[in-house]
Design a protein around this nucleic acid. Sequence first.
DNA 1: ACAAAAACATACTAATTAGTATGTTTTTTG
DNA 2: CAAAAAACATACTAATTAGTATGTTTTTGT
Lengths: 196, 196
Amino acid sequence: MKKAQATRLNILQKAFELIYSKGYQTTSIDDIIATTEVTKGAFYYHFKSKDDMGLAIIEEILKPALTSSFITALQSKENPIDGIYSLLYNILMNNDYFKVEYGCPVANFASEMTPWNSKFSHVLEELTKEWIEVMINTVEKGKKDGFIRQNVNAKHVSTFIMSGYWGIRNFGKIENDKKAYLPYLEELKIYLNTLS
Amino acid sequence: MKKAQATRLNILQKAFELIYSKGYQTTSIDDIIATTEVTKGAFYYHFKSKDDMGLAIIEEILKPALTSSFITALQSKENPIDGIYSLLYNILMNNDYFKVEYGCPVANFASEMTPWNSKFSHVLEELTKEWIEVMINTVEKGKKDGFIRQNVNAKHVSTFIMSGYWGIRNFGKIENDKKAYLPYLEELKIYLNTLS
DNA sequence: ACAAAAACATACTAATTAGTATGTTTTTTG
DNA sequence: CAAAAAACATACTAATTAGTATGTTTTTGT
């Protein structure tokens, strides 16, 4: 019950990298077992289907990694305006787990799977709602602490910011250059300051 | 030289609908010829490959349709703040060519094709740059006409707005309900008013 | 140590894929 | 009207796909 978990995790991680760079549909199981150097038997011992593995990637790789870094980044600054900006700046400019040319893995999954696969839709909805909730709470706390105006709607602001993030990720993919992020970040900073 | 063009256009339109709802990879040529009721011979007479057809969809269907409606919507109001808001409101809430559950066709293409297909990346980059340019010009005109502050950076603002649009489209896909657009639109209105 | 279960390996299958080879029909043009 | 080119039709192919059937090896509990 130790080595087996390691191979399972190895499959998930390697498969994630392949899917993140090539997309879910274009990543075949043969691709995955070739790069992980496990056999098909091992793969289907751990996952009952390709979709089962895809969902496990979201639940076991993306969800914990992103949610924790999301929360700590937001809480790193006293003023949520600084917290939100530094979260987005760092995730776009300094994170080298994410690549400009590949966009946001969650947005990619959503874009590719969502209309025709309800299981994926569901876990992705849960995940994004969790993020929005975290950001809403941050904004509300900022209102209580006097950093943000009382008439700011936390849900609207959070949705607005998350949308911009997903969108600029797609721009980055197209332009294939982190420089594409800069105009967005500049305007984000100005926008965030209007909330105080 | 008349009926042939009609079949070509028919293929492009039906293929677009399939791709818009299911994605490019998951739409097979057999799918396309089944719904268009043309044969494989006809298909490959008009397009030399699947990618050739995909690019034709962008160039001949999406580009003209979107760019023209984009420009006229932006110019419909004297104040660009109203113009931009009504453009986004209408494209999100009133356009029934686009479906919530399928998102933005251009963003879908970008998300799915961009990292591994440079030809698609290129035409999509051209297309989005064109939109950004149009919006920049609108904002600049608004500055000249006194509707928008002089210290507003038109490029930053345009990129910021376009990002938000693409992102909220992805949210809509996940939530599968136009209501997901409303918090975004409310905050967009507030943001746009800070530009005046 | 040994049986049983867990973990992995190999060789297949049936379906689907983009694309082609080779036709026939329809239009156009001289 | 006839030949040539354009437009479409049919039947294939070779590769790839997710998934399975049937093994062997390794680990675990007793």
